[in-house]
C-alpha cells in the first residue's frame, strides 16, 4: 500500500532518512511546525522521485518548498544548479542563489550543505559544533592512529572522514545512537551553536 503522501502544505525535501531525522529535530527545536520532511533520493534518483512528488495529490496546495542537498565533492554551485534545473522542468519558482528565497507562489528555497559555498555535507556542518573542543582532538587522534597503523584496508576509496568522525563521536555518547539524525533527535548536536545559524535562517525565512 502507499505510505508516502503529502500531509502538509510546507515541504522540506532532503537527501536521506538521516537528514529527515536531523531536520525534524531542528524544526522542533526552532518551534517551526507543520512542515513535512521528505526523504528524497540523491543526485541520481532525485529527478524521478521529485516528479513523483510533484505529480502527487496535494502538491498543488503546497505553499512553501525547501530543498536541501549535500555539495559533496563538487562545489555548492553544481548541486544548486542541478536542483534549479529540476524546479524549472516543473515550472516551479527558482531561487537566484542558495538561501535566497523566491516568493513564488509557492515559496521556494535551496540550501546546499554545509555552507552554500564550498563542498561538504551535513556531517561537516554538525562537526563544526565540536570544532576546537577536546572531543574533536580525540576524534582526529583516533583516525590518525587507524590510518598510521593501516588497521582497516578494505574499500579505502569509499572512506569518508566526516562520516567516520560523526560515527566515532556518536559512539562515545550514552545512550548510543548509530546515526547523525537520531543523534539530533536526542540532543547530541548543539543547535544553539553559531554554525547552525545559516540553516536556521533558511528554515525561518521559508517556513516561519
Amino acid at each position: 500500500m502507499a505510505k508516502n503522501k503529502i500531509t502538509e502544505q510546507q515541504l522540506l525535501l532532503v537527501e536521506g532518512k538521516d537528514e529527515c531525522n536531523f531536520f525534524e529535530a531542528l524544526l522542533t527545536y526552532e518551534k517551526i511546525k507543520k512542515v513535512q520532511c521528505i526523504n528524497i533520493g540523491g543526485k541520481d534518483k532525485f529527478p524521478n522521485e521529485f516528479t513523483a512528488w510533484f505529480n502527487m495529490e496535494g502538491f498543488k496546495a503546497v505553499s512553501a518548498l525547501g530543498l536541501v542537498r549535500d555539495a559533496e565533492v563538487n562545489q555548492a554551485k553544481s548541486a544548486f544548479e542541478s536542483l534549479c534545473y529540476n524546479l524549472k522542468e516543473h515550472h516551479l519558482p527558482v531561487p537566484s542563489t542558495p538561501s535566497t528565497l523566491n516568493l513564488g507562489p509557492p515559496k521556494v528555497n535551496i540550501f546546499i550543505m554545509s555552507d552554500n559555498q564550498g563542498s561538504g555535507m551535513l556531517e561537516d556542518l554538525c562537526l563544526k559544533t565540536i570544532k576546537g573542543q577536546t572531543v574533536e582532538k580525540c576524534l582526529c587522534d583516533y583516525l590518525a592512529c587507524i590510518s598510521a597503523n593501516q588497521v582497516l584496508l578494505e574499500e579505502q576509496e569509499k572512506f569518508n572522514e566526516s562520516k567516520a568522525k560523526v560515527q566515532a563521536y556518536l559512539a562515545m555518547r550514552a545512550p548510543i545512537v548509530n546515526s547523525l539524525g537520531l543523534g539530533a533527535k536526542v540532543g547530541y548536536w548543539d543547535f544553539s551553536h553559531p554554525s547552525f545559524h545559516a540553516v536556521k535562517e533558511f528554515l525561518h525565512t521559508l517556513f516561519g
Partner: peptide
C-alpha cells in the same frame, strides 16, 4: 493530467508513494 513515465512510476512505487 499528471503523467508518470515508466521510470518515475517505478521510483514512486519503490518508495511506496501515493500515485493515485
Amino acid at each position: 493530467a499528471f503523467c508518470y513515465s515508466a521510470e518515475v512510476l517505478r521510483a514512486g512505487v519503490e518508495k511506496e508513494f501515493e500515485v493515485r
